[in-house]
Simulated scan of single mutants.
Amino acid sequence: MELKKELHEILEKPNTHKYGMFVQVIIYINIFVSILVLFLETEESLQPYKNMFDMINMISIIIFTVEYISRLYSINYLNNRKRLRYMFTPFMIIDLLVLLPFYLSFLNIDLAFLRTLRILRIFKLFRLAKFIEFDNILAQIVTEKKEEFIFILIASVIILFTIAPLVFYFEHDVQPMVFKSMLDSLWWSIVTFTTVGYGDMYPITGMGRILATFLGVFGIAFYAIPGSILTSAFLDKMNHKKHDRQEKNSREKNSDEE
C-alpha cells in the first residue's frame, strides 16, 4: 500500500512528492529524445548510428513501459477506481498506442502505420498539469457554448451542400474533367470554405466565380465567429480564475493575521 501511495503521488500529483518533479522531468526528456530519434533515424547520412538509435529506443520503451504499469498499479490507491476503466481513458490509450508498435514487432508485425504511431509520444506532454488545467477550461467552454457551436456547424453544412451542387451545374459542362461529379464539387467547396484553396480546382464561369467569392467570404466569417466566442469565453474563465485565486490568497492572509 505504501508503494502504491508513493507511485500515485509521483505520477498523478508530482507537485506533492519530493521526487515527483524529478520523475516528471525524466519522463518529458524521454519523450523529447524519443521523438528526436524518430526523425534522426530516417536520415540516410546517420544510418551508421542505427545501433545507437535502436539502443535509445529500447531504453525509451522501457521507461514508457515502467510508467504505464506503475500508473495502472497505483491508480486505485485512494479509491476503488477500476483499472480496466482507467485503461480506456484518453491519456492511457495514448500511452498504450505509444507502446504497441514496439511490442507488436515481436509478433513480426511491422506495418508502416504502426511505426507512425510512435509520433503519438508527443501527446504525452499533455499530461503536464498546466495542459490538463487548460483542457478542463476548454471542455467547460465547449459545454457552455455548445448551442452556438452546433448552430455554426449546421449553418456551415447547409452552405456547403447548397453551393456545391450549384457550382457543379455551372462548371461541369465547361470543365467536365475537373468538376466530374458533385462529390468533386463538394471537395472543392470544403477546401474553399476552409480557405485552404489548393488551386487544383477552380471555377472559370462567371457564376462559378461569384459563388466561389461568397463561399470564401462565408468561410472567413464562420472561422472568425467561433474563434471570437472561444477567445472571449476563455478570457472570461481566466479572469474568474484569477479573481478566485486572489480571494483565496486574501482569505488565507486574513486568517494568518487573526
Results as ranks from 00 to 15, higher is better:
residue 1 M to Y: 09
residue 1 M to S: 12
residue 3 L to E: 08
residue 9 E to T: 12
residue 15 N to A: 13
residue 23 V to W: 05
residue 24 Q to Y: 14
residue 25 V to P: 01
residue 27 I to N: 04
residue 29 I to G: 04
residue 31 I to M: 09
residue 34 S to F: 04
residue 35 I to P: 05
residue 35 I to D: 03
residue 36 L to Y: 09
residue 39 F to M: 09
residue 40 L to C: 08
residue 44 E to M: 09
residue 45 S to R: 15
residue 46 L to E: 08
residue 49 Y to C: 00
residue 49 Y to Q: 03
residue 50 K to Y: 14
residue 52 M to N: 13
residue 53 F to E: 06
residue 60 S to K: 05
residue 61 I to R: 06
residue 63 I to E: 05
residue 64 F to T: 01
residue 68 Y to T: 01
residue 70 S to Q: 11
residue 73 Y to G: 00
residue 73 Y to V: 01
residue 73 Y to D: 00
residue 75 I to C: 07
residue 75 I to P: 01
residue 77 Y to D: 06
residue 77 Y to G: 04
residue 78 L to T: 01
residue 82 K to F: 01
residue 85 R to Y: 14
residue 88 F to W: 12
residue 89 T to W: 02
residue 90 P to D: 03
residue 91 F to H: 07
residue 93 I to C: 00
residue 94 I to G: 07
residue 100 L to W: 01
residue 100 L to E: 04
residue 101 P to H: 12
residue 103 Y to F: 15
residue 103 Y to A: 00
residue 104 L to K: 05
residue 105 S to Y: 13
residue 105 S to A: 13
residue 107 L to P: 01
residue 108 N to Y: 13
residue 114 L to D: 03
residue 117 L to F: 15
residue 118 R to N: 10
residue 120 L to T: 06
residue 125 L to C: 08
residue 125 L to Q: 03
residue 129 A to E: 14
residue 131 F to N: 05
residue 132 I to A: 10
residue 136 N to D: 02
residue 138 L to F: 11
residue 138 L to S: 09
residue 143 T to Q: 12
residue 144 E to I: 09
residue 144 E to L: 11
residue 144 E to D: 12
residue 144 E to M: 08
residue 146 K to W: 11
residue 147 E to G: 02
residue 147 E to Q: 11
residue 150 I to F: 14
residue 155 A to F: 10
residue 156 S to V: 02
residue 161 F to P: 00
residue 162 T to C: 10
residue 162 T to H: 07
residue 171 E to C: 06
residue 171 E to R: 11
residue 175 Q to M: 08
residue 175 Q to I: 05
residue 178 V to H: 06
residue 180 K to R: 13
residue 180 K to D: 04
residue 183 L to Y: 12
residue 185 S to V: 01
residue 186 L to N: 03
residue 186 L to G: 02
residue 188 W to I: 04
residue 189 S to I: 02
residue 190 I to C: 02
residue 193 F to C: 04
residue 195 T to A: 09
residue 198 Y to T: 07
residue 200 D to R: 04
residue 202 Y to W: 10
residue 205 T to Q: 09
residue 213 T to M: 11
residue 216 G to D: 07
residue 218 F to C: 10
residue 221 A to H: 08
residue 222 F to A: 03
residue 222 F to I: 00
residue 222 F to Y: 15
residue 225 I to D: 07
residue 227 G to H: 01
residue 228 S to V: 12
residue 231 T to E: 06
residue 232 S to Q: 13
residue 232 S to M: 11
residue 232 S to P: 07
residue 234 F to I: 00
residue 236 D to K: 15
residue 242 K to T: 00
residue 242 K to H: 10
residue 243 H to A: 13
residue 244 D to L: 13
residue 245 R to D: 10
residue 246 Q to R: 15
residue 249 N to Q: 14
residue 252 E to A: 12
